[in-house]
Design a protein around this nucleic acid. Structure first.
Length: 341
DNA sequence: CCTGTCAAGCTGACGC
DNA sequence: GCGTCAGCTTGACAGG
């Protein structure tokens, strides 16, 4: 049995970032496909746990795993290379070392920031100005995703709210926006608000490509999703942790089944051994029964019975034993398990 | 970055 | 339909 754990190729670049236009255009992100693969070379294929969830319905059915939009392998880089933590710059050569090692980046640039604090009016105004000045910028491509939670995009909700209710259908993002708007009025100290489906989907997409982010990617994602870098960082941390947890559960179940199989096999062999031992100890009794002559072929070492033995060839071995013992011997020759009595 | 934990938010079941 | 509750998900944080 062989278990392989892998996080995949972490050296790939973020091709999904190229897709931001489609998201900005309001198209739904497809590809929420989860695959858990567990290979066991010496086991039947049915033992390999493999789930593939393509549709939203499937994802609902597989609620347990629904947050995994990724391909999971059993050997994350860090596990496959214990003690070897790849430097960001090694995985992404285009990133200068000094950037990847900046503590501010590593810490998400948010130390000391209260995520629940409302942004200052100046900040809101600045953001609004930025939106006006560059309506096609990456930052504005995710205006629909504005949950204006944690002060990341306050001041944009009214438009979405109005648009969202105009047709009587409230999208997930708009609902989140609306909720956040209420919370903003009722409880400015609320600790957490959920990301919109679109934001989550986009993060999932990025997670499929890379399980870790370098500061550049983190900032780009944060900008596109209208989140703070710290939020993106935390999201990835949680995502990694939960992926690992899920994989651990899958591994555990698989190993449990293996263990059960081996235990059962062990029991069976023990029983077989007991039976053979019992036959051996009772052999004197059976020895008094009419003997059957067995001839063992020297080449293939198979035992066969002969009705009568007028003359025994010199090249064969004759065994005299009871019919039951003979049957046991026949069983022993066909059994793949070698037992010493 | 990992791990453990907390707590907000969501969802389904249940009783009224 | 509504309120309540338990269970679950997930954003956030602290400590290592």
């Amino acid at each position: 049995m062989e278990l392989a754990l892998s996080l995949g190729d972490t050296s790939k670049s973020f091709s999904f970032l190229e897709k931001k236009d489609s998201i900005a255009n309001g198209r739904e992100i497809k590809g929420s496909c989860m695959r858990l693969a567990l290979n066991a070379r010496s086991h039947e294929n049915t033992e390999a746990a493999e789930y593939e969830i393509e549709s939203e319905e499937d994802k609902e059915e597989m609620r347990v795993s629904s947050d995994s939009t990724l391909q999971l392998h059993l050997l994350p880089f860090s596990l496959a290379n214990p003690g070897v933590q790849p430097r960001t710059s090694q995985l992404r050569p285009w990133l200068p070392d000094n950037l990847s090692s900046q503590p501010d980046y590593a810490d998400g640039q948010s130390r000391g920031l209260d995520v629940n604090r409302l942004p200052s009016p100046a900040a809101v105004a600045e953001e609004a100005a930025e939106e006006q000045s560059s309506p096609n910028s990456a930052g504005s491509s995710f205006n629909e995703f504005s949950v204006h939670k944690n002060g990341s995009s306050y001041g944009k909700s009214k438009r979405v709210e109005l648009e969202g209710h105009s047709n009587g259908h409230e999208t997930e993002t708009e609902k989140a926006t609306s909720r956040a708007s209420d919370d903003e009025e009722n409880d400015s100290t609320r600790k957490k608000l959920r990301l919109s489906k679109e934001q989550s989907a986009f993060l999932e997409e990025s997670f499929k490509e890379h399980h870790t982010l370098n500061p550049k990617q983190k900032l780009a994602l944060a900008k596109q999703l209208n989140l703070r870098p710290r939020q993106v960082e935390v999201w990835f941390q949680n995502r990694r942790a939960r992926t690992k947890l899920k994989q651990t559960e899958v591994d555990f179940e698989y190993l449990k089944r293996c263990c059960e199989k081996l235990t059962e096999e062990n029991r069976r062999l023990q029983r077989e051994l007991q039976e053979l031992r019992g036959l051996k100890t009772s052999q004197p009794f059976y020895m008094q029964l009419p003997a059957t002559t067995l001839i063992m072929c020297p080449s293939c070492e198979r035992v066969s019975t002969t009705p009568t033995v007028p003359s025994i060839p010199a090249t064969t071995t004759t065994l005299a034993m009871s019919p039951i013992t003979a049957a046991a011997a026949e069983t022993a020759t066909t059994s793949s398990t070698a037992l010493s009595l």
